[in-house]
Design a binder for these strands. Structure first.
Lengths: 120, 120
DNA sequence: TTAATATATGAGTAATCACTCATATGTTAT
DNA sequence: ATAACATATGAGTGATTACTCATATATTAA
């Protein structure tokens, strides 16, 4: 080790040769982060179940908590997470807060993915 | 606290009343986990960039490493992750290993999501 | 007012993650 | 054989995460 150490593959790599000038098109950092953020929001079993329930009807926190067999606090935290990303929205009625899907695009992404995965 | 503690909302909740008999349809646990697993795989900026690059062409590890401006080890680890989920596949040619997308469904999920997010 | 209910939230924690570093493996050239 | 290169991988680490617990807030009823 520790000798000539050619700085890059540009001269030696048997690869694509596309490194110079650059591999295009490039996805801007902020877009990559934004896309990943959405996928990550859908990348947890509890949140998947929540979204799946809300595909069919609006539900209050307690009903979600019961349906998911999880503590109310855990559900509230996840709903907060989804709400911050505008995936889910609130409707208050007395003491009760009903949640439903907020974004048609997210809903379509979810449903289309569901269909894809069912045919794999 | 610590007194009557009614066991559930079934009698008192002002909610949907759908708790009994149950909220249907239910997404089976293993399906929820599987769906979340796929979304999670797409839920990281580095992996998003990798998949985006591979949408357009096959690339070797070094070229990906250069394009992503990340260490070769980090890239290899992520490629391993994606390969385990059959999102990406290998093709060996001498010393070089080329990676490309392995699954048309995942590719469609990715592209459709890209389009959705561009129109939000 | 006080009590009960429904939800929200901050702190704490164990598990997971996305890297780095060092090293191992595999391939080609000399 | 040895050396150089290309990739893979195990260990280690700091950051993030998905929960629990206790408590706060909000609404309604008595």
């Amino acid at each position: 080790m520790e000798k000539t150490l050619i700085e890059s593959c540009e001269d030696t790599c048997t690869g694509t040769g596309l490194v110079q000038p650059a591999i295009e098109p490039r996805l801007p950092e902020h877009q990559a982060v934004g896309i990943a953020e959405v996928f990550k929001a859908l990348g947890d079993p509890t949140r998947v179940k929540i979204i799946y329930f809300l595909l069919h009807r609006e539900l209050c926190v307690h009903d979600l908590s019961t349906a998911l067999e999880m503590g109310q606090s855990a559900v509230s935290h996840q709903l907060r997470y989804l709400r911050d990303l505008h995936i889910v929205k609130r409707r208050k009625e007395g003491k009760t807060v009903f949640y439903s899907l907020d974004d048609g695009h997210i809903e379509q992404i979810f449903v289309q993915t569901l269909h894809h995965l069912q045919h794999m």
